[in-house]
Design a protein around this nucleic acid. Structure first.
Length: 579
DNA sequence: GCCGTTTTCGGCCCGACTGTTTTCAGTCG
């Protein structure tokens, strides 16, 4: 199996084992052990097979003797014995049923044992014909809720990309502020942690009149359905079946609530364990002394972390990995910030399939406070995108030279997004590549090549001395296309050897490399490069999404090409080419 | 199933809401 999915696959199997064990009514601690290990494996920056080879599986938090054995089984045979046994014992349909909101392991088991329900269709049929309410503890209301839950599940498109959820949450917050029904509001949950996809939108607010806030929130134009409307909490469904929750808390508890609702769950559990050791208790209202029950913090987040002896931890790295241990030692890295970014290193103009002129791009970038932009249009191998031939590239270079004389304060860099062909060569001659400041190369076709062919193509491109950056290295598009099956570790090793950078493509549906792989690249000493891949002028605004990935990958500014000053950047690539 | 300057055995994070009850289990975040 290609390394790209191994960590995820093992995490998925452990989560599934946990689901099965829940149905069996196993001890919750055992179930949580599987879930904790799954979470840690998914966040692991290293490929798990590497740890296996080095006999270091036990260094993964939450992995002991038993789970290490199961990981070994999977790596060696592609299966986990216990998982297979559980699958034979319990129909997988029960896991599907548990995805219906309101149905957990207990109800799934009850429905299966009493009514032989092992699919969502059968569940729907049984609820409609009121067979469910013949069971103990189930009445009309539960049947109705289950039907609603099934409806929701069918309509919902799964997780929403951050690029959609974040702006939506910001619009809702602006609206609440404008209506003056909240004094302050923040999106929390995975939006605040800037995860690439979001389940639902959680907003936390302070208000002197919570009921008025609830009224305004549930009456928003975009609301399609009100799920619940209480005095301090309401839930609504807006366009595209996205659920939005608003909670109002006291000013004195805002920090504690923000911390609590930002998560992640794993991070919060570790935090609370640490608090208990210090004789404290954390909940969404504050930090309390266990003995006296006296509240000692809660107003803001800094205070909450400080109360348990920690510095404030950036939301992007609150995943329950090693951030708490490092914070305790005072060794948290200084994560890169948007203000550290000096340029956008991947932009298309109307010379190929973009819509903006180079002048418009440069002017906009200057307004954004950027010092440089890399124009990287497609090349002739990508006919559908109006890719440029050598002659056109030379003409574009002339235009950029003259624009650079005209526009001051921002430097337009000459680049190209060369197409990596089937044999790994580029569709542009070295002679032309030589005349450019920075060359990007990427794969745009033949994704389904066998993994070794794809990998070889990529390696050859990286070895081209003029190539500086590999764009969208895994080719995944959220909700549309999985990453291609390249051997990413071999790609990284070759990048390292040749001084080639890997891109964090900031286009919200790409975010490629993702957070986990960007971190792995950084740990291997590879430079990363943020590019918006903008095809329209307003898409230059995607730059922050690249920074979010970088922060989730624990990058500092010295890990990113974009944080170099212009002359430093140019020197870097001159040196790489050997002149 | 994991884990250890209190412990190699006995702990393991916290609270709200809902629907069903009549004190609570199940579900969720």
């Amino acid at each position: 199996m290609g390394v790209r999915t191994l960590n995820k696959e093992i995490a998925r199997i452990f989560n599934e084992i946990a689901d099965f064990l829940e149905i069996k009514g196993e001890l919750s601690f055992k179930i949580n052990a599987y879930r904790r290990a799954a979470q840690n494996i998914e966040n692991l920056s290293k490929d798990i097979s590497e740890l296996f080879k080095e006999n270091k599986l036990h260094t993964i938090p939450g992995v002991g003797k038993e789970l290490a054995e199961k990981i070994k089984q999977f790596i060696e045979t592609g299966k986990v014995k216990k998982h297979e046994e559980l699958k034979a014992e319990i129909p997988v349909g029960l896991l599907e049923i548990m995805r219906v909101p309101g149905v957990g392991p207990k109800k799934a088991k009850l429905f299966y044992e009493k009514l032989k329900i092992d699919s969502i269709d059968k569940l729907e049929e049984a609820a409609r014909s009121h067979k469910l309410s013949t069971l103990p503890g189930i009445q009309k209301k539960t049947e109705e809720n289950i039907l609603k839950g099934i409806e929701f599940l069918k309509k919902s498109s799964g997780r929403i990309p951050l690029g959609r959820a974040l702006p939506l949450s910001q619009r809702i917050i602006e609206y609440l502020l404008e209506k003056k029904v909240v004094e302050r509001a923040e999106a929390c949950g995975s939006i605040r942690r800037r995860k690439e996809t979001i389940g639902d939108i959680d907003i936390l607010g302070i208000s002197s009149d919570p009921e008025k806030a609830m009224e305004a929130f549930t009456k928003m134009e975009i609301v399609k359905e009100v799920l619940a409307k209480g005095t301090t909490k309401s839930s609504v469904i807006v366009e595209d079946n996205i659920q939005v929750d608003l909670r109002i808390v006291d000013k004195d508890s805002f920090g504690a609530a923000l911390q609590y609702f930002t998560g992640s769950k794993e991070h919060n559990i570790k935090l609370r364990e640490l608090a208990v050791k210090k004789g404290l208790k954390i909940n969404e209202y504050g930090v309390f002394d266990l003995k006296t029950d006296k509240k000692i913090a809660g107003k803001d987040e800094e205070e909450v972390y400080k109360a348990i002896g920690l510095p404030w931890i950036p939301p992007e790295i609150r995943e329950g990995g090693e951030e708490i241990e490092l914070a305790l030692q005072g060794n948290l890295p200084e994560l890169v910030e948007l203000k550290d970014i000096k340029g956008d290193l991947h932009i298309h103009s109307k010379w190929s399939d973009g819509t903006a002129s180079i002048e418009e791009i440069a002017t906009c970038a200057k307004e954004m406070g950027l010092k440089y932009v890399l124009i990287a249009d497609h090349t002739k191998g990508l006919g559908v995108a109006g890719g440029l031939n050598e002659e056109e590239i030379s003409e574009q270079i002339k235009e950029i030279d003259s624009l650079n004389k005209k526009i001051k304060g921002v430097r337009i860099l000459k680049g190209i997004e060369a197409n990596i062909q089937n044999d790994g060569s580029l569709d542009v001659s070295d002679e032309v590549l030589k005349s450019l400041d920075i060359v990007i190369a990427s794969i745009h076709h033949g994704f389904k090549n066998p993994p070794d062919v794809l990998t070889r193509r990529m390696l050859r491109a990286i070895e081209n001395p003029y190539v500086g950056i590999i764009a969208h290295p895994t080719g995944r598009i959220l909700g549309e296309r999985d990453a291609y099956e390249i051997d990413i570790d071999e790609v990284m090793a070759t990048c390292k050897k040749n001084g080639v950078a890997l891109e964090i493509n900031a286009y919200p549906l790409r975010l490629d490399l993702n957070d986990v792989l960007s971190r792995r690249a950084m740990e291997k000493g590879i430079m990363l490069s943020i590019g918006t891949d903008a095809h329209q002028i307003d898409q230059l605004a995607y730059l922050p999404y690249g920074v979010y990935v970088a922060r989730r990958a624990w990058l500092r500014k010295d890990h990113l090409l974009n944080c170099m000053e212009l002359d430093e950047l140019l020197r870097y690539f001159k040196k790489k080419r050997g002149n």
